[in-house]
Write a protein that binds this DNA or RNA. Structure first.
Lengths: 209, 209
DNA sequence: CACGACGTCACCCGGACGGGCGAACGGCGC
DNA sequence: GCGCCGTTCGCCCGTCCGGGTGACGTCGTG
């Protein structure tokens, strides 16, 4: 029983993907989830053979959801769906444990091929994106793109809503000093040095919405 | 011959929408376009009865495309598709000439109903969004969403790239004090009080990328 | 058990930021 | 000509922010 689990917060995208994936030979069941949290909750029971996950989602983003899923289920196969041909996002997707990534603009054939290959167990990359990746300078050995912790993500979310450290602290029942500690740490991880940069990067990577 | 034209840069979304819309009684032909430019080019020849347009698209955004389309074809019916339940975006959609707006998370039934009503000639709003709009305080009679000037947009862009006021000033050949003046003004216009909020709003409104 | 990662809190300090205010110039429209 | 707007620049001041450092507790892993 070959099952594919689709995760996206937009019903339209879920249905679009479903109609695409249902045509793939070998796929017998297609399930859908509307959030990263839902995937984490359902995966242990349903054990889909492949997860198609959108990067950009409210709450747990696709990246973080994938990281956690792969951490607890190392054999999980995740293909990340990215809206834009953004090297940052793709690199992030791979470092977070995704087996592959697809542009939301893929053709029916490309998606079929990708799903089929992934079900075969092969890691894969979308051809046009592979080219984009290969074009990049091989110099910088890639900062490991450290994953944010739960708290750090909460603080970043607060920042993206324009809240001050004090406000974030009150909402999370923390002291302002603690929020500042989390802020410092997430700045380090993201490689930025102020909240504006952090917010911008958060949006670009789909950590916040 | 009732025709609906779907416009979105992601094939998956286009196909998802197509599968939704094709089920609507009365719709005989469903066309798709991948950009706002394509819609403007094809509309005069194909004269679709309804256009479903995504707000977030590279190049000509959905808002600008709608504005131009309605300017040249005042009888054009456009339903805007928004990803997030964002009052700002919806208000913008309406002021740009859209007859209605839908969340990308609509159910099949909601979309069918919306399309059917729009084809009937009625202006419409998505129920869950209407509620969100009605919940807002009726006190503030809507700040006209003042447009940013060229300079202000440049400063905001710099902010979204994590630059300090001094850096922005050096790049634009301005004094830091001048940058701060533009910053203060764009904060006022956007209704925020620090750069992090401004960056977040910039991303949400698509002012920066 | 010891170690590391995470979370919580605290202190100090310098600098960047944000707000209020004033001022001057050029262009545009009436 | 007058007024409005956008742009440019300056000053003051309070404050929040960001960096450094230290500390303590709790987990889970090795």
């Amino acid at each position: 029983m070959t099952t594919v689990l689709i995760c996206d917060d937009h019903r339209i995208v879920r249905e679009g993907l479903r109609s695409f994936v249902q045509g793939v030979p070998g796929v017998e069941r297609v399930e859908t989830a509307a959030s990263g949290e839902e995937v984490l909750a359902r995966y242990p029971h349903e054990r889909p053979d492949l997860v198609l996950m959108d990067v950009r989602m409210p709450g747990l983003g696709g990246l973080e959801a994938t990281r956690r899923l792969v951490a607890s289920h190392p054999d999980a196969k995740v293909i990340m769906l990215t809206a834009a041909d953004d090297r940052e996002q793709i690199a992030a997707a791979v470092t977070h444990g995704a087996r592959g990534y697809l542009l939301k603009d893929v053709s029916h054939e490309e998606l079929c091929a990708a799903v089929a290959h992934a079900l075969d167990g092969a890691d894969l990359v979308e051809p046009s994106l592979r080219r984009a990746l290969l074009q990049r300078e091989p110099s910088r050995s890639a900062p490991p793109a450290a994953a944010l912790t739960e708290r750090e993500l909460q603080v970043l979310t607060g920042m993206s809503q324009g809240k001050s450290n004090g406000q974030i602290g009150r909402e999370l029942y923390l002291s302002e000093d603690t929020v500042k500690t989390h802020a410092r740490r997430l700045f380090r991880k993201l490689g930025v040095n102020d909240r504006a940069q952090a917010v911008a990067l958060g949006f670009r990577r789909g950590l916040v919405t």
